[in-house]
């Protein structure tokens, strides 16, 4: 492979990589928003008491 075509391939790979990140990030954010939309039905009720009740004994 010539230097020129190698570098153009690198460039297009970089662009693809950037697009890929864009897509992943968008999908990730949509997942977060979607979960937050229904968070009240997922979270345990009485947050303060529940967290206070999570008491562990020592471990390693």
């Amino acid at each position: 492979m010539t230097q020129e075509s190698f570098s153009s391939r690198r460039q297009s790979e970089t662009q693809e990589h950037a697009e890929q990140i864009q897509v992943n990030t968008t999908g990730q954010s949509a997942g977060v928003d979607d979960l937050l939309d229904e968070i009240d039905s997922v979270l345990e009720s009485n947050a303060e008491e529940f967290v206070r009740g999570f008491v562990q004994k020592g471990g390693q």
């Binding site: 999908g27 990730q28 949509a30 997942g31 977060v32 979607d34 979960l35 968070i39 997922v42 979270l43 345990e44 947050a47 303060e48 529940f50 967290v51 999570f54």
Partner: peptide, 29 residues
């Protein structure tokens, strides 16, 4: 806020319908 503390804890709940990690993963996130 107590709900933030609860999210920190419930992130690690092993139940797949309650654990926030699993709920997020189920959305492909």
């Amino acid at each position: 806020d107590p709900r933030i503390g609860l999210m920190d804890l419930q992130w690690a709940d092993l139940r797949q319908d309650k654990g926030l990690y699993y709920r997020l993963a189920a959305r492909g996130a």
